[in-house]
Design a protein around this nucleic acid. Structure first.
Length: 502
RNA sequence: CGGGGUGUAGCACAGCCCGGCUAGUGCGCUACGUUCGGGACGUAGAGGUCGGAGGUUCGAAUCCUCUCACCCCGACCA
């Protein structure tokens, strides 16, 4: 087939639309917005500076919230001896299929292939090391040494780390073999205190998702089948993506005494009696970046909420020659200073190697919330052109009012993104009372489906097999409501949230 | 691990079925000039062990054998 060169150029620069091919749109967007790329290491991605900057913003926001709730950061080893890993059986079993294992500690020159290396068979480890898929084992093994008395409790620790889960199929940010996350691990004297911690951190995640990411979430409890192996209860926040699929954005686990018993972590209470410690763990990962992208972005590229945008305002000068650039720059400098004084991240893109139109498209692709253009005509009139990324709206502003109006505009964008996403989620949430309707909604409309379920793992598995939809969660705010299970007709007392999920 | 596919310039690909001379196109890159308020254009240039090894042949990107890597679809998953 002959393809007109001009069409090839357009195709090289633009994204497929979300309607055409949602997953291709996502992959292309991640690459063109310069967030990340596939590495030459199977299943592992390179997070590029712009993508990492978003992660740093997320870390800053979350870290402050963790500190404000009394947590401190620490770091535990990447490697976990196999025997330690398997101490909590359910947890170990749950992850066994996706663990990377270190078996040797040395390479040597390969006599059969000069210049090549081989694993030195002499250097086999006495005990294999598991590359952590999560750190409960090593951490509880350590807590055992730290805890003797109720006075040692609670322990409220978080760690920022990488973990490895050997996934079959990977997608940038959403699922990779290695990913970055934070994992909180706390130890408490009472069950009630641990439950409260679990719920508190769930609230922290929900607040972060909503106020920083502008992404509304539903808080809930996981079903038995979906919960973290090794936990008594798993709570989660679930978000809705623009293609109607659900994304688990964060989890918080009440571990009961499972890990304390597995690692023999006991404390002496005020009454002198020995008791096992109660635990929690909770985490969010770089997957949040995938959620952020799919929650807000459009066919022209990334759309970032101001609170997580590495660049709040980009200023694009318009000029024909060096003399004009000098004049424009002189007008831009005080604007940059004023905005930076307000704590905003401002980029003045004065490259002479690219045309303004190119820059406009580039920053739209990268989701910079506000763009200011300023050229010779503005200089005469003391104005600038301000464009907002979320609505594409442009308006002319007096230079004098920039410093007061831009912060307000950023707040407005943040709020607008949240409102828009919330409205979308509400439209994509459907209550159904029959299995026919259940399947029809999933196929035709997608999104969240609120339906009655008889509470059994068998029915849950059956529905998953028949429809590919899973129980995302049992919403915490679900009202008591008598009904019958949409699949089996058995009695149910509340609706649960179903969806096809990432 | 089953089923399918792809490896040719930094990127995207054509050429392969039907072997032929110096391996092409677009983007990108370098230089110069003209442009510059929504992804500019012209001219000149640089860039290749055709994934790897072996074989058939006067001659291999092209045919054969082996091998490696990656991608897609299934079973599993934050």
């Amino acid at each position: 087939m002959y393809i007109c060169p001009s069409i090839q150029i357009i195709m090289a620069k633009e994204l497929p639309t979300r309607a055409e091919d949602y997953s291709q749109w996502y992959v292309d967007l991640v690459k063109k917005a310069d967030l990340a790329e596939n590495s030459d290491v199977r299943g592992c991605m390179v997070i590029k500076p712009y993508g990492y900057a978003i992660w740093e913003k997320m870390q800053q926001g979350l870290d402050k919230m963790f500190k404000d709730t009394g947590h401190v950061n620490a770091y535990f080893p990447l490697f976990v001896p196999k025997s330690m890993f398997e101490a909590e059986e359910k947890n170990a079993e749950g992850f066994a299929k996706e663990c990377a294992i270190v078996t040797h500690y040395r390479l040597k020159n390969d006599p059969a292939n000069p210049g090549k290396l081989m694993v030195d068979p002499e250097a086999k480890l006495e005990e294999e090391l598991v590359v952590r898929p999560t750190s409960e084992a090593i951490i509880w093994n350590t807590y055992k040494k730290w805890i003797q008395s109720h006075r040692d409790l609670p322990i409220l620790i978080n760690q920022w780390a990488n973990v490895v889960r050997w996934e079959m199929r990977t997608r940038l940010f959403l699922r990779t073999a290695e990913f970055l996350w934070q994992e909180g691990h706390t130890a408490h004297a009472t069950s009630a205190e641990a439950v409260a911690e679990t719920r508190q951190m769930l609230d922290v995640y929900a607040e972060f998702a909503e106020t920083f990411m502008a992404m509304p979430v539903i808080k809930g409890r996981k079903s038995e089948g979906e919960k973290f192996p090794g936990a008594i209860d798993t709570y989660c926040i679930e978000a809705m993506m623009q293609d109607g699929k659900a994304l688990q954005a964060g989890t918080s686990h009440f571990l009961g005494q499972n890990f304390a018993k597995a690692f023999n972590v006991q404390y002496t209470g005020k009454d002198g009696k020995l008791e096992y410690v109660w635990g929690t763990s909770w985490g969010v990962s770089t997957r949040l970046i995938g959620g952020l992208i799919m929650a807000h972005s459009d066919d022209d590229g990334l759309v970032l909420p101001p609170k997580l945008a590495p660049i709040h305002v980009v200023i694009v000068p318009i000029f024909k020659n060096e003399e004009e650039l000098t004049k424009v720059s002189a007008a831009v400098d005080p604007i940059v200073k004023d905005l930076r004084k307000l704590g905003l991240s401002v980029k003045f893109d004065n490259r002479e190697t690219h045309k303004p139109g190119f820059k406009f498209a580039e920053y739209e692709m990268k989701g910079v919330p506000v763009r200011i253009a300023i050229g010779p005509r503005d200089l005469e009139q003391g104005t600038v052109e301000v464009a907002r990324r979320d609505t594409k709206e442009k308006k002319v502003m007096q230079v004098a009012e920039v410093a007061t109006r831009i912060p307000a505009l950023l707040d407005e964008i943040q709020q607008n993104l949240y409102n828009r996403a919330l409205k979308f989620r509400e439209e994509k949430t459907t209550r159904v009372d029959s299995y026919e309707e259940f399947k029809k909604v999933l196929d035709d409309k997608a999104g969240f489906v609120l339906a009655h379920w008889d509470g059994t793992a068998e029915t849950e598995a059956l529905i998953k097999e028949e429809t590919k939809a899973t129980i995302r969660c049992i919403p915490l705010d679900a009202a008591e409501e008598n009904g019958v299970c949409v699949r089996t007709g058995k009695p149910s007392t509340r609706r649960v949230l179903f969806a096809r999920a990432y």
